[in-house]
Design a protein around this nucleic acid. Structure first.
Length: 731
DNA sequence: CTAAACCGACTTTTT
DNA sequence: GTCGGTTTAG
């Protein structure tokens, strides 16, 4: 790869973009509106610094919020500069901190193989703390306590500082839990997500030479999505930038939607106060959406106070009006969306992959999914229950973590009786007490189960067997590749066998997930032939599903508005635009309307060509019926840019007989509704059916979501099957 | 110790 | 409506 010419790096940039790329150094604030080409500015700027300013790649620290964004940036810079770009630090805050902390672990008394606990693990530890302190989890909900601890860490308030500023009884209790919680993490040689940030700042403050070392080495620092940084992250970058003051932050205050996670818009709003000599550049030309969409979004967001004035514009042309549809209920809404999608694919030649539906809460996706299945529209859901949060994946992961870090008691507790080994809560408590008394890990204690007087013989045997399995696995883990270790673990632990023995549809799915996990490990092995289990775990622990979201199959995309940030689609539906849903009732209580409005702005500005809003007059959510008004955000749309329509429903018509084939054939979606009665994939209770594998049977139940329950003649087993996927037909 | 029954929570979640 | 956690019965 030859050096790119500077012209190449500056070509096709507009004036402000070019100024941002060329800015030689010093503090730089780029206010980048949605779709204004900020990623391009960021990558070209990095390349420019290296090619024209003589900055070495390893002197660059570029921070993004997702691994996906980091990888994309790395790739793009690499395509500009070639492999030397690989020595750059391009990563998330958490990954950068983990890297630093692994190197400096001894300074803080940690071992470098510390485990990183995710949110679920964290709550589990809090629960244990509550138990040990004899506190009632009803009065002190673990999740709530954890939230306080987490937000304290994000504000760099450690357990000690927290204890000193206690103001009431509740906080006093939290302080005790917080202190014990930290003690436990340390004993487990573990850190939680928030620790990664807080402890790195702590490291820098306690060991100035360490700070100086990193300050010196990072000559240029760039931070993306700066509006979403929390206090700890703010401190981190500002500490690191102190020496060279070459700090470039990019963001958009109008897209700050994570304040509830500790993000502080002040960080970006006050940048010019922090750095009075800062260069400020606004990117307002949008290369994504039609002018109608932008004008509508501008109008909505202008209802917010306390923002940096910004007005997006485009030369892509006016475009279609924003369409707003009122529907009777969530089913009609779903049918409207499905009908429009069919129409767009047929008449306007949009591909499924170009269409997305956004909603405020995950629970809204279910009805939509049911309907899409019935319409035969392929979809994929981003977010929701995440792959790495599924029980079986966490179990498998816990085995690997325990092999790598024997001190990790959270992982130990997870796997000691999974699969069932007859080691119940009582035995584990005894074991835990023994481990504490002896000052050893629980795994070590299990190996010495025979020495523990209070254990039942059966439990002793089970623990000895478990311990033997673990040491055998640890032994072979020394030389094997990750995928082999994983497979061996699943087999030798008996996990796979227990799952297979269940013979249920659920277990089937879990086995598939585990297979996929093995696939992930195989991919890692082939990508990193010299990798280790530890490095694999490191990568996995900071990984989320969104990272691997690629536009592969032809399917529409379903996700929450939060997950939509940073993405774009030619066609966007925002559903459930109702007071109480969006804006969400919780945010209204907390007076966070402005953040909801920013969320709306984010959603709208994802759309390239077509934008839809839908709302319903009545909605069933969480099992009860609600009557909502249209969202205030609908009212904030400029009338002349909107095309409004209402479902032409005759109210009160229901097709009777709840046999699982309830249909309302009375609204706009009607034209595209597939026929039900002669559908090949439609079954009623009592139908005789034949399955390719299981043989003949009878339908004993019809459920929502295109699922039928079938009892099979061969073995009398009852299975739930997806009619659209299962090889099932009427006899 | 395990399985069934029961109870209540439930916004969003880049790491 | 569903999940996860806790209680209770076997």
């Amino acid at each position: 790869m030859t050096k790119p010419s500077l012209d190449h790096l500056l070509a096709d940039l507009n004036e402000p973009q070019r100024r941002a790329v060329e800015c030689p150094g010093g503090p730089l604030l780029v206010l980048a509106g949605a779709g204004s080409g900020k990623t391009r500015v960021l990558t070209n700027r990095i390349a420019f610094l290296i090619a024209a300013q003589g900055v070495k790649p390893h002197e660059i620290l570029a921070i993004t919020f997702t691994n996906k964004a980091a990888n994309e940036m790395k790739e793009r810079v690499e395509s500009l500069l070639g492999p030397i770009a690989r020595t750059m630090w391009v990563s998330t805050f958490h990954a950068a901190c983990a890297r630093i902390l692994r190197k400096e672990a001894q300074q803080l008394g940690y071992q470098r193989n510390f485990t990183i606990y995710d949110a679920g693990d964290q709550v589990r530890v809090v629960k244990r703390c509550l138990k040990e302190l004899g506190l009632d989890p009803k009065r002190f909900p673990p999740k709530g306590i954890h939230a306080v601890i987490s937000s304290s860490k994000n504000r760099l308030v450690d357990a000690e500082a927290f204890s000193e500023m206690v103001e009431n009884f509740f906080d006093d209790t939290v302080a005790k839990v917080y202190t014990l919680y930290q003690k436990k993490l340390f004993a487990n040689n573990a850190m939680d997500f928030d620790d990664l940030l807080m402890r790195t700042v702590d490291l820098f403050q306690r060991f100035p030479d360490r700070l100086e070392h990193y300050q010196k080495s990072f000559r240029q620092i760039l931070v993306d999505e700066y509006q979403d940084t929390n206090h700890a992250q703010y401190m981190l970058v500002n500490l690191l930038a102190k020496q060279h003051r070459n700090i470039c932050v990019v963001g958009d205050d109008d897209q700050s939607i994570y304040s509830w996670r500790g993000a502080d818009v002040r960080n970006i709003l006050d940048f010019e106060k922090d750095y009075p000599e800062a260069t400020v550049i606004k990117l307002e030309q949008n290369y994504r959406s039609t002018q109608v969409i932008l004008s509508a979004a501008n109008e909505v967001i202008s209802n917010n106070s306390d923002r940096k004035a910004k007005e997006l514009w485009t030369d892509l042309g006016e475009g279609e009006p924003v369409r707003v549809a009122e529907m009777d209920d969530e089913h009609a809404e779903a049918r409207f969306v499905a009908g429009e999608i069919s129409r767009l694919e047929r008449d306007a030649c949009f591909r499924a992959a170009e269409i997305a539906v956004f909603y405020r809460v995950n629970a809204q996706s279910r009805v939509l999914e049911d309907t899409l299945i019935r319409y035969g529209i392929h979809y994929r859901v981003v977010g929701g229950t995440k792959f790495y949060e599924r029980a079986e994946i966490k179990d498998a992961l816990a085995y690997l973590l325990a092999l790598d870090n024997p001190s990790d008691s959270v992982s130990f507790n997870r796997i000691i009786n999974s699969p069932k080994r007859g080691i119940g809560a009582a035995s584990v408590t005894v074991l835990s007490r023994f481990a504490d008394a002896e000052g050893t890990s629980m795994l070590e204690a299990a190996a010495r189960a025979g020495d523990i007087a209070d254990l039942r013989p059966a439990a002793v045997n089970a623990m000895a067997a478990f311990s033997a399995t673990m040491s055998q696995l640890a032994e072979s883990a020394k030389s094997a590749q990750v995928a082999e270790i994983l497979e061996e673990t699943l087999v030798n632990s008996g996990y796979l066998e227990a799952l297979s023995a269940e013979r249920t549809v659920e277990a089937e799915g879990r086995l598939e997930n585990l297979q996929e996990f093995v696939g992930v490990a195989e991919e890692y092995d082939s990508l990193h032939p010299d990798g280790s289990l530890r490095e694999f775990l490191q990568e996995i622990s900071l990984y989320t599903d969104i990272d691997k979201m690629t536009e592969v199959e032809e399917a529409i995309t379903l996700m929450t508005l939060h997950n939509a940030k940073g993405l774009e689609f030619p066609v966007v539906f925002i559903i459930g635009a109702e007071e109480g849903i969006f804006p969400h009732s919780r945010s209204m209580e907390e007076q966070n309307i402005e953040e909801e409005r920013r969320l709306c702005y984010v959603g709208m500005t994802r759309a390239r060509q077509r934008l839809y809003f839908t709302y319903t007059t009545t909605r069933n959510l969480y099992g009860s019926r609600n009557y909502n008004m249209a969202s205030r955000f609908i009212g904030e749309l400029p009338e002349d840019l909107v095309e409004f329509e209402r479902s032409r429903t005759t109210h009160g018509r229901f097709s009777g007989g709840m046999t699982g084939r309830v249909r309302f054939d009375d609204d706009i979606g009607e034209v595209d509704e597939p026929a039900t009665s002669d559908e090949p994939n439609f079954f009623n209770v009592g139908d005789d059916v034949v399955h390719a594998t299981f043989g003949s049977g009878v339908v004993i139940g019809v459920e929502r979501g295109g699922t039928v329950a079938v009892r099979f003649a061969a073995d009398g087993s009852e299975r739930k099957l997806m009619v659209d996927y299962a090889p099932l037909r009427k006899a």
